[in-house]
Design a protein around this nucleic acid. Structure first.
Lengths: 203, 203, 203, 203
DNA sequence: TATGAATGAGAGTTCATTCAT
DNA sequence: GATGAATGAACTCTCATTCAT
């Protein structure tokens, strides 16, 4: 019989991950030291190591958690959207609105950092590639759906389009995370949306 | 009375920078230790510190050197190109061809890393913002030139377009530096070029 | 909830300071490396840095601790001494007896080293000047007290006398710390005491 | 046949020693790096090592040179002084006047540093002890001379008095080198002279 | 002889991780 | 389960000394 409830443990774990996100977002993964997370979370160093085996695992679990959340959100939102165009529009809306929030900003930075950090750590590659593919698949399916429905140009390669979609998104977020200029960021998104949609739309 | 020629020193300096680029490109700035550069360059630790005052300075000088080189190349190439469209096409060509080379690949990674690393180091921000603005200006001028010549849609905000241009480029490079799939990368560039040009072109 | 008692930490701290005193006394501040203190104290390098932020801080804290101890001792001893002459005699006794002990010897060396080291470090100057003034004040008050009581020649400038007192002390200690000849040191003190007291005494 | 004259070499050597004195006096022996001497002397690193085998040797040769000079000066000055009292008075005068000069100030600091540094280096001890004895002998002889002539109290132990003489001098100089207050320094010397002479004088 | 670029052992300090309490 | 003191390998940077030119 466990001494504390599963829920207690889950909450503590999330608490650590939230602090970690904040720290990684602010200082970067490598520059964040465990004591930063200790200070932010008010959880002792030893306790943190009871929940995660290493700093890297915190990173990975954080990535997983946020990725899962993203897809949960998207599935829920997309359930009520019937066209590919609506789904894409919803995504752009999310990028323009939600991701300006502090929390998502930090997540974004952490995401971007993964690309770099992960690309040099062989043991992370497969995890990160899987995550990448999940994102690619997500848009790819929407594109395919749109092509079937005649909304999207059938000549386009859905995977290629999906890859471009995320590259554009990450590039834009990368610059915003550095420059921090909201208005420019929003304007860029408006233009990107227009450019992207006019390119993929049928006719 | 200098002991060695200015050329000798310049070459040695470049030698160090080349090794540094290789190491930073492979392992990342933070993960690269001075001894990596020592090993790669066959230049002693002390000698490296005769040419650069710190690891960070190596990083910064590398950034500067490659940025300067990029603009030197571009100026030279653009000198013989008379239209904005030709200049943009030339840039896309460069992205598609030249930047597949190992050396430029690493430069790209290092560039991207700057965005993240630099965004948290106050003392680097101004340097990096200046560099960013240099890139923005470069494309902005081409867009303005194209608008004057009637090649490019006059309704577009040149700066906004320039920002998008680089965001797309960096996003694409970011993913390529991680995935390393050349064919996908080239296909993506082809599509991006088509999408971008069809969006900005007049008519 | 502290992991260990305040007393435990205080003892550990003192343990480090004692080892530091031994090392600094034997090899000098600059020549002492942290590993010397590690070896002598059997406390790991990391643990030392949990208690002190730098080698210089160890030095400074050591100085402070020993200075405080000196004045605590003196206050206690002087409490039962009613004349300036008795207080001065007690001091000379201390110099002659107590400071021959190994521990005090090393403290003396470290003290002297402070004069030199501190005189070139701007950030230490104020600390060291404050400490100097504390010593000057201490004797100055005794002199003034002696003058009021008619024990000491009223024509003398108390501060000047106090400065000479400590200069003579430090010079004598400096030579002893180098030569290490106890008998000569004691003889010197006897003569200095006679010379000094006959000079300052009234009449 | 030497390529350069002995005089040339001697001058260069002295040049290095003068720069070394300046640097050691300003920053201390340990904190002075060879490049400080290079910069001050305008003599290359390699050349310095042609004249001296190590940093320590520079230190030692400097000590020797200045010590020799001191005794040369003293012999010359004392040649025309016929009483012990006159010789002592001359010394005090020197301490009060000449040693305020920048150059002598630095020499003084370097001297004091020798006591500390030398006391922990076994290979220096004999050199420094010899130098110490030379100073002790110098005053001791004056005291003996004064006792023979009836100027100085015959009950005093000449060597003990000589030791005290130098201890007082070094202590006073130590404090002055740190505090740098000329007036206090001069006042202290006036009082010390009075105190010392009244103690040793016959009658 | 003179030069100053090169060397590399070694310094202070950091921090992910462990483990006795 | 929680704590935070302890550990020590690893990091960046320094500088006395060497040596090819």
């Amino acid at each position: 019989m466990p001494k504390v409830s599963a829920q207690y443990k889950e909450e503590k774990r999330n608490h650590i991950l939230e602090s970690a996100l904040k720290c990684f977002g602010e200082k970067g993964y490598q520059a964040t030291i465990i004591d930063d997370i200790v200070k932010d979370s008010n959880i002792s160093k030893g306790a943190i190591y009871n929940y995660f085996t290493s700093k890297e695992e915190i990173y990975l679990q954080l990535l997983k958690q946020r990725t899962d959340r993203f897809f949960e959100d998207m599935e829920q939102e997309n359930a009520s959207l019937t066209s590919a165009n609506a789904k894409l529009a919803n995504l752009f809306k999310r990028f323009k609105k939600q991701e300006l929030k502090e929390d998502d900003q930090q997540t974004m930075r952490v995401y971007i950092e993964f690309w770099l950090y992960g690309s040099r750590q062989d043991d992370l590659r497969s995890i990160l590639v899987a995550r990448y593919n999940r994102f690619i698949d997500f848009i790819e399916k929407i594109i395919v759906e749109g092509q079937s429905a005649g909304e999207i140009n059938k000549d386009l390669d859905p995977q290629n389009i999906s890859r471009i979609f995320w590259a554009v998104r990450d590039g834009n977020v990368l610059h915003y995370s550095f420059l921090g200029e909201e208005e420019q960021y929003r304007n860029a998104w408006d233009t990107i949306e227009e450019m992207f949609l006019s390119y993929v739309k049928n006719g």
